[in-house]
Every structure is written in structure tokens, then in C-alpha cells.
């Protein structure tokens, strides 16, 4: 199997992280704590109001849950690509480039951090509870759509992670700029689209495609019409954006790697 070297690298990472056991479990717990801040903030909002943009608490929680699972999956798989800034600045990317393996794959495997697994568990619990509370009339099609939407969402977020990290090839000190679309994108998709202003919604929801991750699949699951006005089949077509984004991100990544100039020291 062609991926075996990557798996070996990732497994080595997992073993090394698990060797400091207390630290490992503390990190797992800490990840949960940080994540629950978002959930608590959402719940506090619903203390004050009964609906957000025309959606009830369980309905918003479904969107929140889909986003949480998709984002956690992407974060587990490629979240550490953010560290590429360090590699570019220090020039250690050279060592990765000379190896007879894919650059992206190596970086992901080397920085794989298993402790983010707890976030996926956490997101799944939220999603499960939300789906239960929302009282959805399940059909086989909807189950399939949910599964595909989660995978597609994870793909989409991964693409966003990779694409924003590529900026480091041109602008090393880009700082938190990438957070706009990664963590900002997560927050954006956690809430229903109609609450946003028209230009903001169009820019982030449709041009960047963040609206298709959780909002439209959730609409289909909940059986609600779209207040924004797109036809009902949008939800069924939404998962297509995931692979599309992945292709775009791959192109950007290739361009970026070709533009890599080492530090020269």
C-alpha cells in the first residue's frame, strides 16, 4: 500500500504523544473545555431569545453539530498544517522536499496529533443530541445525506486549512490571517445563514461556499424551506462543494510549493 510510510509516520507520532500519559489526557480534556466555550455561548444566546434567524434551538444545534464534527475531522487530519509557517521560516521544509514522498502527506503525518480525537467525539455527541431533539423524520436518503455532508464538510474545511496555510509561502508573517476562514468559517457555519447581512452572506456563504457545509444539508434534514430563497434541491447538491474545494486547494498548494524559496542559511 502506497500510504504505508505515512501511516508509519503518523503512528510514530501517536506513540510519542501517548508516552506522556498525564499530559496526553490533560490535553484531551483541555480540548473539550475549549470547544465547550462555543457551545455554551450558543446556549446563552438562546437564554435571551427563542429563535435565531427563524430557527429554534435544536435546529441551530443541528447546524452547530454538523459543523463541529466536520471541523474536528478536518482539524484532526490537517489542522497542524498551520505549522508550515515555522517550517518555511526556519527552512526545515528542505528536508521534507528531498524525501521521495509527497510533501503534504509527510507534513500531515509528522504533525499528526491524536489528542484532537476528543473533539470529534464531543462534536458527535452534540450532533446526536441535536438530531434527537429536532425530531427529524428519517428516510434512508437523509441518513445518506448526513453521512456524505459530514465527510464533504470535513473535506471542505481541510481544503480551507491547506489553502490558508499555503499563504505562508509568500507571506511568512501572515499571523492569524488564516483564522478568518478557518476558525471564522467554523463560527460562520455554526449559525444559520439568514442571520447574516446580505453582502456578508454572499461573500462567505456562496462565493467562498461556507454556506453549503452545514446550513443547506441541515435544511433538508429538518425539512425546512430556505428563507434565503434557494431551491430545495440545494441541500442535496451541497456536498459536491467538498471535493470541489479540495481540488482548488490542491491547485493552490502545488503553486505554493513551487514558489518555495529556502532561507539560504
Amino acid at each position: 500500500m502506497a500510504d504505508r510510510p505515512y501511516l508509519a509516520l503518523a503512528a510514530a507520532q501517536v506513540r510519542s504523544q501517548a508516552s506522556y500519559r498525564l499530559s496526553f489526557w490533560l490535553d484531551m480534556a483541555g480540548n473539550l473545555v475549549v470547544l465547550s466555550a462555543d457551545l455554551l455561548a450558543l446556549l446563552v444566546m438562546f437564554q435571551v431569545t427563542d429563535d435565531l434567524g427563524g430557527f429554534t434551538r435544536p435546529q441551530v444545534l443541528v447546524m452547530f453539530g454538523i459543523t463541529a464534527v466536520a471541523f474536528s475531522l478536518a482539524d484532526l487530519a490537517v489542522g497542524n498544517i498551520e505549522r508550515i509557517r515555522v517550517y518555511v521560516r526556519t527552512g526545515t521544509l528542505d528536508t521534507v522536499l528531498v524525501r521521495p514522498l509527497g510533501v503534504l502527506g509527510q507534513l500531515l503525518a509528522v504533525d499528526f496529533s491524536i489528542r484532537r480525537l476528543s473533539r470529534i467525539v464531543y462534536g458527535s455527541v452534540i450532533l446526536g443530541v441535536a438530531l434527537h431533539l429536532a425530531g427529524i423524520s428519517w428516510t434512508p436518503g437523509k441518513v445518506l445525506l448526513l453521512a456524505v455532508a459530514l465527510v464533504s464538510g470535513a473535506l471542505f474545511f481541510s481544503a480551507v486549512f491547506v489553502a490558508t496555510a499555503t499563504v505562508a509561502f509568500w507571506w511568512i508573517e501572515s499571523g492569524e490571517l488564516g483564522n478568518i476562514v478557518t476558525y471564522g468559517g467554523r463560527d460562520f457555519t455554526s449559525y444559520p445563514l439568514p442571520i447574516y447581512g446580505a453582502w456578508f452572506r454572499r461573500l462567505f456563504g456562496f462565493v467562498l461556499g461556507l454556506g453549503f457545509i452545514s446550513y443547506y444539508p441541515a435544511l433538508v434534514l429538518l425539512g425546512e424551506p430556505d428563507p434565503v430563497g434557494l431551491p430545495a434541491w440545494t441541500g442535496w447538491a451541497a456536498p459536491l462543494t467538498g471535493p470541489l474545494a479540495a481540488v482548488v486547494a490542491a491547485l493552490i498548494w502545488r503553486t505554493g510549493v513551487r514558489h518555495y524559496r529556502s532561507t539560504g542559511s
Binding site: 431569545t49 429563535d51 442571520i195
Partner: peptide, 13 residues
């Protein structure tokens, strides 16, 4: 922008 729109939705009613 994100937080503004969320809070605007909260106070919309």
C-alpha cells in the same frame, strides 16, 4: 462581523 450578526439576530424580535 460574525458576532454582530449573531447578536443582531438575538435582539431581532
Amino acid at each position: 462581523f460574525l458576532r454582530s450578526y449573531v447578536l443582531l439576530a438575538v435582539s431581532a424580535g
